[in-house]
């Protein structure tokens, strides 16, 4: 360079250039609709959620129980075809207090996404794996949330469940 090069290309535009019509542009919307098959492992997972259960997949060769379930063990590449219910309680491994939505809208009350290590799955202590899932926390003041907090799933009423990760509304702290 940057010593030898004096001029760099690239022209910076501002929002104002668009608002004032100084720039020609082509606006279009892309529309795509999809219906994703859930497959064997996740299909079983979703069916169990509808029944109020969280499934893990086990490999007895590798002594691992992981969630969400899958059909192949990432360590030995053999089938992981035994699905067993875990508990709907666990520990907050990490969390965030998020003040923006997925499409960058500001919100006053933060969403509290978290990674929750479910009871009954393999833990960090048993190797480089944990039975963690991403979900949200609720019924808790943001300032009270902490790593290591014990939590329990709050489910939708059985008749409203549809076989989705949102059949769990959120996880809430377990009262001591």
């Amino acid at each position: 360079m940057t010593v030898k090069i004096k001029e760099f290309p690239g022209t910076s535009l501002s929002e104002k250039d668009f608002d004032e019509g100084k720039i020609l542009f082509n606006y279009d919307e892309l529309k795509g609709e999809f219906a994703w098959d859930t497959g064997i492992a996740i299909g079983s997972y979703l069916a169990a959620l509808k029944e109020g259960l969280i499934l893990g997949a086990a490999c007895y060769t590798c002594h691992k129980i992981v969630t969400p379930p899958r059909t192949v063990c990432e360590w030995c590449f053999d089938p992981m075809d035994e699905y067993i219910p875990l508990l709907d309680t666990g520990v907050v491994n990490t969390f965030s207090l998020c003040y923006v939505t997925w499409d960058v809208q500001r919100i006053e009350q933060p969403e509290i996404p978290a990674v929750i290590m479910l009871d009954g799955a393999s833990s960090l202590d048993s190797g480089p794996i944990m039975g963690g899932i991403m979900h949200k926390l609720g019924e808790v003041k943001p300032e009270k949330v902490h790593i290591g907090m014990r939590v329990k799933a709050v489910w939708k009423p059985a008749e409203e469940r549809e076989g989705s990760v949102t059949d769990i509304l959120y996880f809430k702290p377990i009262e001591n």
Partner: peptide, 24 residues
């Protein structure tokens, strides 16, 4: 698309979750 997107995650989530885990 099935196990995570239904929660409407924000890309910031995963960084915030990782940063919190790291710093804590």
């Amino acid at each position: 698309h099935t196990t995570e997107r239904a929660l409407k995650p924000n890309l910031l989530w995963i960084f915030a979750l990782e940063m919190n885990r790291y710093m804590t």
